[in-house]
């Protein structure tokens, strides 16, 4: 679903946009108490390879943030730093005011994590997987039933995970991340390999969590997904943040404002909506009824990405 001009996005309604950075200056600064995740000068090296290169970012409470970029852009590495799996080479990351490296034990109960690669006990049933993690989090067993219902896995709950489809495994990951109702959710490509219905279920759950005040950070390749559910999106390329804005503003900023027209006599014309003269000429054509076909240019994410990064989106 895309938001047409003039329609508020979820972020617009919550007034998030007036506090965000911009593509030209994506760095969000300031010690805002409403900030849930703060990344300052994050740099991560794998040997000599720079995975993340000086990333600065702030993500607020109750925000659904999308991290978008091609393979190897540094999205998953950033998530790994956020969950404490990877130590930053330089820079500082805090979640709810706690340093991820120094206060990892305090941060762990605050987040749920859906990795890009499913990691279940294959020999256990879906229910037993959740019960085990529920015991670690100290949540009652009733909660297991609730999350199974939430992700629509009730019927398969008592089957061994080794018999699950990819989609079911993904949903079980989400159920695990939701068990303890964490205030922060990290999702690494949560809808990859999901059918349309399952992806909708995931989106619905994420929106519900955000509505209840949780902060959600997801990485994805899918611009449509970002447009449908994210309040803000950060585009990363080669470890750097190249754009930071709402999907709507990105669309507005990077859609070519041109109209392709085919006249009644078959002639093809292009009108630039930025030019008053061009707009007037198009209006005149319409009034005279000489327009056989008219089409506005759509937002082309791949072209936009190419423009922003100088690199094709793979």
């Amino acid at each position: 679903m895309s938001y047409p001009h003039g329609v508020d996005t979820p972020a617009d309604r919550r007034g998030l946009h007036d506090r965000q950075g911009s593509a030209e200056n994506p760095t969000a600064t300031g010690a805002d108490p409403d900030v849930m995740i703060r990344i300052c000068g994050l740099r991560v090296l794998y040997g000599s390879f720079v995975a993340v290169d000086g990333l600065d970012l702030e993500i607020r409470r109750g925000e659904l943030f999308g991290l978008l970029g091609p393979n190897g852009a540094g999205k998953s590495t950033t998530i790994r730093v956020l969950i404490g799996q990877r130590r930053p080479t330089a820079g500082r990351v805090t979640v709810a005011g706690h340093d991820v490296v120094r206060e990892w034990a305090r941060i762990k109960p605050l987040f749920g994590y859906v990795p890009d690669r499913e990691n279940h006990f294959e020999e256990f049933t879906g229910r037993r997987n959740l019960e085990f993690f529920g015991e670690l989090y100290g949540v009652p067993r009733l909660r297991v039933n609730a999350v199974l219902k939430m992700v629509e896995l009730e019927e398969a709950a008592d089957l061994p995970v080794r018999g699950y489809s990819l989609g079911m495994r993904k949903k079980l990951l989400l159920a695990r991340a939701l068990l303890h109702e964490p205030p922060v959710l990290y999702l690494d490509e949560p809808t990859a390999n999901l059918d349309i219905h399952s992806a909708e279920v995931v989106h619905r759950i994420l929106r519900e969590r955000v509505r209840k005040g949780a902060t959600v950070v997801l990485t994805t390749h899918d611009m449509d997904e970002v447009e449908r559910i994210c309040d803000r999106v950060g585009i990363v390329c080669r470890g750097k943040l190249v754009a930071l804005d709402s999907p709507l503003h990105l669309r507005q900023a990077h859609t070519e404002r041109k109209v392709d027209v085919i006249r009644s006599d078959g002639e093809r014309l292009v009108f630039d909506m930025e030019q008053p003269a061009s707009r007037a000429e198009l209006a005149a054509l319409l009034i005279r009824g000489e327009v056989a076909s008219l089409r506005t240019r759509e937002f082309d994410f791949h072209a936009t990405f190419l423009k922003l990064t100088g690199q094709a989106f793979e």
């Binding site: 969950i83 404490g84 799996q85 034990a105 762990k108 109960p109 987040f111 994590y113 990795p115 690669r117 499913e118 990691n119 279940h120 006990f121 294959e122 993690f133 670690l136 989090y137 100290g138 695990r176």
Partner: peptide, 14 residues
Amino acid sequence: ERGVLLAQALSPAS
């Protein structure tokens, strides 16, 4: 290898 150890490490279990 499966990543289950990581899942446990990310839980409250130290």
